[in-house]
Design a protein around this nucleic acid. Structure first.
Lengths: 225, 225
DNA sequence: GTCCAGAGAATTATGCAGATTTTTCTCCAT
DNA sequence: ATGGAGAAAAATCTGCATAATTCTCTGGAC
């Protein structure tokens, strides 16, 4: 194999699976995560689950209650607003820096990521998973060049949480807009325009997502959770 | 009861202790963290240690190597530079927002935090711990009002890592500058000046810390780690 | 009848002591 | 030096013991 083995630990497997399931909304917001129950489902011991939950609690993807277990975080309109606002702050900063550090390979990676995104339709149930991945990769590609692994990681954390809001809201009838032209315009601005213009497009892109879900809250569809 | 007990778990105790010890530089950068050994020192089972290390790895305070255990992250000049740069980006954003949301209680908390900081001398070994805490609290107070728990948390993470660089460097002869007047000027700018001026002071404050430690790297004092 | 307090049962989280697997070290032959 | 068998060390995992919380039910006060 050309591949460095980097064999994964059982606990890490559970961590990855749980992480994905929470982000995908397979566990409802607010739901209690019983260790024994999860251990049973995945067929592993309780310590592996405990360790996975501990890791997830450090990224705020699960809440930890000392002596009382773990739960999926609830969702709330105020939290959603602050999440999106913070994301705009950090991603525009990252985008500015990335554009200031412009390189050919960075630009090429963006073009490629957009092309790959164009292959999938977000309104087709079979392709939605692929679309989500490609979408995420496109946005990551825009920032990749910002020069700070720290900032990239923070943006990633926020993106994961935002994805959870989006995917949870699908279950309540939120329709995903296609938005290919939006991404195309964003790319053009990033490659050929000013940083200010590109950042504006990025912000309004996220604001649309914000408002789509804001409506669901205001209609009371995401109440309980 | 008016008080929710919130009793802490053994694993959390270990987590807190380890976290402090790593930040204080009691473990050398790059040092391997053997589970059995730590479990022995703290007198707990290996699972509690494993869980604590897992949590710490999620905040990048320890590195995880699948199947091969954990280690304290190494230090390096490039990492230090990027850490400080990122910190400047995030903290200036947070400070701008905090100043835009100005409230009386926020201003009062800053005044109080500076007063408390003035009680300690950073060059007295007995008081250094107190000074570090007060210093941290002062900087936290400046940003507290920024309106985003996410941004505050990210700033906190960066501050913890920066503190590790500072405290590790003490072991190699870095002298802590007192800098009370620097903090006083910063406070005045935050309370009475423009955001731009306050952010400039904040950045130059961090740049001085950066350069103090940069010198140690250039002199080869922090080589190995 | 409704509400509350509290004892005790049931459930769940937490912790521990090895068993098992993987990696790392040692030493010898090439 | 290089490769590799085997020993030693370390990490990982399991199953169960212990401790804490949560639930259930009873009895009484109003």
């Amino acid at each position: 194999m050309a591949k460095v083995s980097e064999k994964t630990t059982l606990s890490t497997t559970v961590y990855q699976k749980l992480r994905g399931d929470i982000i995908k909304g397979e566990f409802r917001p607010g739901e209690k995560l019983r260790i024994e129950s999860i251990a049973g489902i995945y067929g592993v011991g309780s310590n592996a689950v405990r360790e996975a939950l501990s890791r997830l609690s450090a990224e705020r993807l699960v809440e930890r209650y000392e002596q009382r277990g773990f739960a999926v975080p609830a969702i709330a309109l105020d939290d959603w607003r602050i999440l999106v606002r913070t994301r705009c702050w950090l991603e525009t900063k990252a985008l500015e820096e990335a554009m200031a550090n412009r390189t050919e390979s960075w630009e090429e990676a963006i073009v490629l990521a957009l092309h790959r995104l164009s292959r999938f339709r977000s309104d087709d149930a079979d392709e939605r998973g692929n679309w989500e991945d490609a979408h995420r990769n496109f946005h990551r590609a825009l920032l990749a060049n910002c020069g700070s692994p720290w900032l990239l990681e923070f943006c990633d954390v926020l993106a994961d949480h935002a994805t959870r809001y989006v995917l949870v809201s699908h279950a309540y009838g939120n329709k995903k807009r296609q938005g290919f032209s939006e991404h195309e315009a964003l790319m053009k601005a990033v490659l050929h325009g000013t940083a200010e213009h590109a950042c504006d497009l990025l912000k309004s892109h996220y604001m649309k997502t914000f408002e789509n879900i804001e409506v669901l809250f205001k209609d009371g569809l995401l109440e309980h959770s």
